[in-house]
Amino acid sequence: KEYCRTLFAYEGTNEDELTFKEGEIIHLISKETGEAGWWRGELNGKEGVFPDNFAVQINEL
């Protein structure tokens, strides 16, 4: 499994977007979303897309 840590808080504006606080760990599902600048991940049981410049991939939890 791949993970990323959020660098900033983000408020999702669409139903398919994740909302998160700074410093949260998102399970990274895919970097290929069909839309440049967006990754797909899962946080707190919800799957959605989020801007990749708001997070950095990490090697271990």
Score class of each variant (00 low, 15 high):
F8S: 13
L43S: 06
A9H: 12
E22T: 09
G45W: 01
G12Y: 02
Y3E: 04
A36R: 13
A55L: 04
G37I: 04
W39A: 08
W38L: 08
F54P: 04
K1A: 05
D16F: 14
S30A: 11
E24K: 03
L18V: 05
G34K: 15
G45P: 01
D16H: 14
A9N: 14
I29K: 09
E15W: 07
T13E: 13
R40C: 07
I25A: 02
T33P: 09
L43Q: 03
Q57D: 12
E60R: 10
F8Y: 11
I29L: 14
E35G: 11
R5S: 05
I25L: 12
L28T: 06
G48Y: 00
Q57T: 13
V56M: 12
A55C: 12
F50K: 00
F8W: 11
L7I: 13
L28P: 04
K31G: 05
E42M: 13
T19L: 01
S30Y: 00
N53V: 10
T13I: 10
A36L: 08
G45T: 02
Y10C: 03
E60S: 11
G12N: 03
W39I: 01
E11Q: 07
T6W: 00
L7S: 12
E35S: 15
Y10S: 04
E35K: 15
A9Y: 08
Y10G: 05
N44Y: 07
N44D: 11
T33S: 12
T13Y: 09
N53C: 11
T13K: 15
A55Q: 05
E60D: 15
H27C: 14
G45N: 07
W39G: 04
T13Q: 15
G41D: 04
N59M: 06
K1R: 08
W38T: 07
F20N: 04
R5H: 06
F54T: 12
E32A: 09
V56E: 14
K1D: 07
Q57K: 10
E47H: 10
R5A: 06
H27N: 10
E11P: 02
T33N: 07
A55E: 02
G41V: 00
N53H: 13
G23F: 01
I26V: 11
T13P: 04
K1W: 05
I29S: 06
N53Q: 13
L18K: 02
V56K: 13
N44F: 06
G45F: 07
I26D: 03
A9I: 05
L43V: 08
G41W: 00
L7Q: 09
N59C: 03
T6S: 12
E22N: 06
C4G: 02
K21D: 15
E32D: 14
L43T: 05
E17F: 05
L18F: 03
V49S: 08
T33A: 10
G12P: 07
E60L: 08
R40I: 04
E32N: 15
G34T: 12
P51M: 14
E17R: 05
E22K: 15
G45I: 06
G12M: 01
K46V: 13
L61C: 15
E17T: 06
T6P: 04
G48I: 02
N53T: 14
W39V: 05
K46N: 08
E42L: 09
G37N: 02
L61G: 13
D52S: 15
E24R: 01
S30K: 06
N59R: 09
T19I: 03
Y10E: 04
N59I: 02
W38N: 01
G23L: 00
E11T: 09
I26L: 09
K1E: 12
E47K: 09
N59F: 01
G37C: 04
N44K: 14
I58K: 07
I29R: 08
K21N: 14
C4A: 04
N53G: 13
Y3N: 08
Y10W: 09
R40P: 01
E32G: 09
E11N: 12
L43G: 02
C4R: 03
E32T: 11
E32L: 05
Q57G: 12
R40S: 04
P51Q: 11
C4F: 14
F8G: 14
E15Y: 09
L28I: 12
T13W: 05
T13S: 13
G23D: 14
I58C: 11
E35H: 12
L43Y: 08
T33C: 10
T6Q: 03
R5W: 03
R5Y: 05
F54A: 15
I26Y: 00
